[in-house]
Every structure is written in C-alpha cells, then in structure tokens.
C-alpha cells in the first residue's frame, strides 16, 4: 500500500453564505478499540439533499447516529443547528428521523395512526395527551405521503412500501427542518423505492434539508444534489455525477459505484492525492 488517497472535496457552492445545518470536523468514532469513522469532515447547508452511500459496514449508520447525537465521537466536532450534537435539546423538535425498518418489531401491536402520532409526542410534551390538533397534523402527514386510509391498520400488516411511508409520515408530523433517513428503501420493491425518493424530492423542493443513507446508489443519483461516499473515511463528497464518475475511486475504496452512470464530468472535485502518513493497513 504505502499511499492512500484522500479526496479533495467541496460541497456545492450555491449554499455558501448560509449557516451550516450539519457540520462535522475531523470526526473519529470508535467502539472499544475499533475505529468506525476516521477524520470525517462534512458539511450540510440548509436546503441540501444529501445521500450517504458506501458498502455494508462502512460506518454509514454510525455517521447518522453521530449526527443525531446518539453516539459521541472520540475526536472532532459535530454541530447540528449550530450546537454540539449531543447537547441538542429543544432543537430536536426541528428533526425528523426515519430509522431502519429492521429496528422496528413488526409484531408490535400498534396501528399506523398510533405510529404517526408518535411524531408529535416530543412537541406534545411529557405526561400531556395529544390534542385533536396533533391528530389532525398526524392525519395530514399521512395524507401527504399517500397512506391516509391506513390510520386504523396494524402497522405490522402493511406492505414494506406502506410501512416506510408511515415512518416518513411520523417524521413529517414533527414538522422537521432536517429530515434524516437510514436506509428508507430496505426491503421495498422498485416502484415503492421510486415513490419514497419522489416524496423526498418534493420535500426538498419545499426547502427541507434531507440526509439519506442508502445503498440504492443508482436510484439515489437521480434525486439528490450531493453524494457523500463513506468507507470509514469520507471517500468522496460532491455532486452525483462528479462522485460517480470516478471509477478508480470505486475500486480503491470499495464503494459500490459500479451502478453509477458515467455522467459528464465537467470538473472533478474528487481526486486522489498523496498522503503524508503511511496508511496503517
């Protein structure tokens, strides 16, 4: 080995001037002795639609959990809404979160409507009951994603695509500025995947900032405006056609870029450079 490649990356320039909504600086995350993320620096400005891609075990979910303040990095700085991620309090009401469907028990006795209403709980406040207004907002969120008829249906009996939309509706019910989704299309068919991303594009067009972890690289490229490729390190970060064009990068870092179309490459922001230190592996 001897050399590793570092990516010189720039975020799309149009958002410059605005305060970042997410800012990671030299973030290293480790569990026990194992380093999961290393020196990740990464900025998301309001209004961006960012996909985090990378192979299995690359640390994508850890990156999301770090941004959400669920994991504390051993090194570096994570700021969300301008505050360190693990000190977020009231700011959490500006978040929408769609967890991996696998983290949810499908045998849990609960209706789709009850799931969506949970999105209101933080705003309702401890002990207090959701009001009819909260129910109205929850129903509206379900209508927004096209599952308004499922209010009384058991969550576990829904199709994969319906479940995802119910979880997205729950995130919407919190009226988020920043929507974070972890693999929102795992276990759903192609049509439902398209539906999910079309919805996200609509939210994006309305000004919502969206961060989505995905392995559907081919699909993601058609919808997002920025792709960040993660494999322990941030391997590439840029507009889809820029990141996706660099095939050597794919081989080198194991990012699953084979699916990517070779777009026009007007300017490559992803380029291999010599590193000063010798790679540890």
């Amino acid at each position: 080995m001897g050399t590793t490649h570092r990516v010189v990356s720039t975020a799309p320039a149009r958002e410059t001037g605005a305060e970042p909504i997410i800012e990671l600086r030299d973030v290293t995350v480790a569990f026990e002795d194992q380093i999961v993320l290393e020196d990740v620096s990464f900025t998301v400005y309001p209004g961006m639609f960012v996909a985090i891609i990378g192979p299995n075990g690359a640390g994508k979910t850890t990156l999301i959990r770090t941004i959400l303040g669920l994991v504390k990095p051993v090194k570096g700085e994570v700021r969300v809404f301008g505050k360190p991620a693990w000190t977020l309090k009231e700011e959490r009401k500006r978040l929408g979160y769609v967890p991996q469907i696998l983290s949810v028990d499908l045998h849990f006795p609960i209706t789709a409507g009850e799931v969506v209403l949970m999105g209101r709980y933080a705003r309702v406040g401890l002990i207090r009951r959701p009001s009819s207004e909260d129910v109205r907002i929850a129903r509206e969120a379900m209508a927004r994603v096209g599952v308004e008829g499922l209010w009384d249906k058991p969550f576990g009996k829904l199709s994969g695509g319906q479940r995802q939309r119910v979880l997205i509706a729950r995130a919407l019910a919190n009226t988020p500025e920043l929507l974070v989704l972890d693999e929102p299309t795992t276990g759903v068919d192609v049509a439902a995947t398209q539906t999910v991303y079309s919805l996200l594009r609509e939210f994006h067009a309305e000004g919502m900032t969206i961060l989505v972890v995905s392995h559907d690289v081919g699909v993601v490229a058609n919808f997002v405006d920025t792709v960040a490729c993660v494999n322990r390190r941030l391997v590439a970060h840029g507009r889809p056609h820029e990141v996706l064009g660099s095939e050597e990068l794919a081989q080198m870092y194991g990012c699953d870029v084979a699916y990517f179309h070779h777009g026009r490459v007007p300017h490559i922001v992803v380029e291999p450079v010599e590193r000063e230190e010798v790679a540890s592996d």
Binding site: K93, S103, I110, L126
Partner: peptide
C-alpha cells in the same frame, strides 16, 4: 404515551428528544 414510544422505537424517541 412515552412508555409506548420507548417500547416501540426507543431510538427515534431519543432522536426526538
């Protein structure tokens, strides 16, 4: 409602504060 939320999906409950 809080006990229901942490029983069903503790991670999202934590994310939402």
């Amino acid at each position: 409602k809080e006990l229901l939320f942490i029983t069903f999906d503790p991670e999202t409950a934590q994310v939402l504060g």
